[in-house]
C-alpha cells in the first residue's frame, strides 16, 4: 500500500544535487515521484487511527504529546500580556502537578518574539515565529526576507515560513525552491519549518512534490498548514509527509522533521498522530526534535486526560486555564 522509496542507493544523494539545476530538471524530478494511491492512503490512515492506546502507554503518549506541542497564538488580537501568559502556561502547563512536562515551543507572530523570548528565558522552551508574510505569503521576497531576519535578530529559535502556493500551483517550482533557500540562508542558525499549506495544494500528489521540494531546499521541518484555511492537518496528509521524510532520509541520509498543525484538538487526535509517526517514519521521529504538534486548545485536553489518569476521575474545563 505504501510507495517504495524512490532510490535508496547511496549514489542517489549526489544524484539529487542535479535535480535543482534548472526549472526543467526540477519539474522532471518532482513529476517523476511516484503517484499517491489516494484510496490506499486514506484507508491506511483510517486503520492506524483505530489503534487503541491505554494505561501506561497512554500516560507515556500524553506526556510525549505535551512535549511535542508548539503552543500557538496567531490572532490579530494578540497582546504582549496574552503571549506572556501563554509562555507561563507552556513552562508549567498544569500548576496542580509540577511533574507535567513543558511544551516544545511557543509560536507567535514576529513582532511578539521579543516578548516571548523575555518570558521564556531560562526555561529551555524554544520561541518559534511565523514569518514571510504569514499566512498568505503574498509579499515581495525582500519583505519576506526582512521579516525573517528581524524575527531571528529578536531571538526566534525557529522560523515557520509559508511557501508561495501561487508559484507552486502554476508550476514555477524553481522560484519556490529559490525562495525557500533564500529564507533558509536568512535564518542563519535558526531552525526552518516550511509550511506547505496542504489545504491549498488540492491533491496528494502536489503535497508529495511540495514536501520533496521543501526538503531539497534545506527545510529542517515540513509543516502541514497554517491553521488559517478550511482544511488543515489531516491524518492522511500527515501520513503522506511522514512517508516523504522517511524516503528523503533513505535517499540522502538527512533527517527532516514534520509538524502537524491546525484542527488537532483532542487527546484522541494527538495520540492518533503519534501512531502515524511511529508506524510510518519510525521511532526515530518520535521525539520533539523531529515531530511537533501545532496547537492551542489541544494542551487543555491533554491536561484533562492526564488528570484523569492521575486521579481516576474525569476532569473538566474548570481545572485547566482559560486561554
Amino acid at each position: 500500500m505504501l510507495s517504495r522509496p524512490p532510490s535508496p542507493s547511496p549514489a542517489a544523494a549526489p544524484g539529487l544535487a542535479d535535480v535543482t539545476a534548472s526549472d526543467a530538471a526540477l519539474r522532471r524530478f518532482l513529476h517523476g515521484l511516484p503517484g499517491v494511491d489516494a484510496v490506499g492512503l486514506d484507508a491506511r490512515a483510517a486503520t492506524l487511527r483505530t489503534r487503541s492506546i491505554k494505561t501506561t502507554s497512554k500516560a507515556f503518549a500524553i506526556d510525549l504529546a505535551i512535549r511535542m506541542i508548539d503552543l500557538t497564538t496567531l490572532e490579530g488580537a494578540d497582546t504582549p500580556g496574552k503571549v506572556r501568559s501563554l509562555c507561563a502556561k507552556g513552562a508549567a502547563p498544569d500548576p496542580t502537578d509540577r511533574d507535567t512536562p513543558a511544551v516544545a515551543a511557543i509560536c507567535v507572530y514576529p513582532d511578539l518574539v521579543t516578548t516571548a523570548v523575555q518570558a521564556l528565558r531560562g526555561t529551555g522552551i524554544k520561541v518559534a515565529s511565523v514569518a514571510t508574510a504569514f499566512p498568505a505569503g503574498r509579499a515581495a521576497r525582500d519583505v519576506k526576507l526582512a521579516d525573517t531576519r528581524q524575527a531571528v535578530a529578536d531571538g526566534a529559535d525557529e522560523i515557520d515560513m509559508v511557501i508561495d502556493r501561487g508559484a507552486f500551483l502554476s508550476g514555477r517550482y524553481l522560484a519556490v525552491f529559490e525562495e525557500i533557500a533564500a529564507v533558509r540562508e536568512a535564518c542563519g542558525g535558526a531552525h526552518l519549518k516550511v509550511i506547505l499549506e496542504n489545504g491549498e495544494l488540492a491533491t496528494y500528489d502536489a503535497i508529495r512534490r511540495a514536501s520533496w521540494l521543501a526538503m531539497l531546499a534545506g527545510a529542517d521541518f515540513i509543516k502541514t498548514s497554517t491553521g488559517k484555511v478550511g482544511v488543515n492537518a489531516t491524518p492522511p496528509n500527515t501520513l503522506l509527509m511522514l512517508e516523504a521524510v522517511r524516503d528523503f532520509r533513505a535517499a540522502t541520509g538527512r533527517q527532516v522533521g514534520v509538524k502537524a498543525a491546525g484542527g488537532i484538538r483532542t487527546t484522541k487526535d494527538a495520540l492518533a498522530y503519534l501512531v502515524l509517526v511511529n508506524e510510518t517514519a519510525g521511532p526515530d521521529w518520535l521525539s520533539p526534535d523531529w515531530f511537533r504538534l501545532g496547537a492551542s486548545s489541544l494542551l487543555n485536553d491533554l491536561l484533562m486526560q492526564r488528570q484523569k489518569l492521575r486521579t481516576g476521575s474525569y476532569s473538566g474545563p474548570d481545572y485547566v486555564t482559560v486561554d
Binding site: M304, Q307, G312, S313, Y314, S315, G316, P317, D318, Y319
Partner: peptide
Amino acid sequence: PPLAAHGDV
C-alpha cells in the same frame, strides 16, 4: 461513581 466524581458535573 464516574458521574459523582466527574470534575465537570
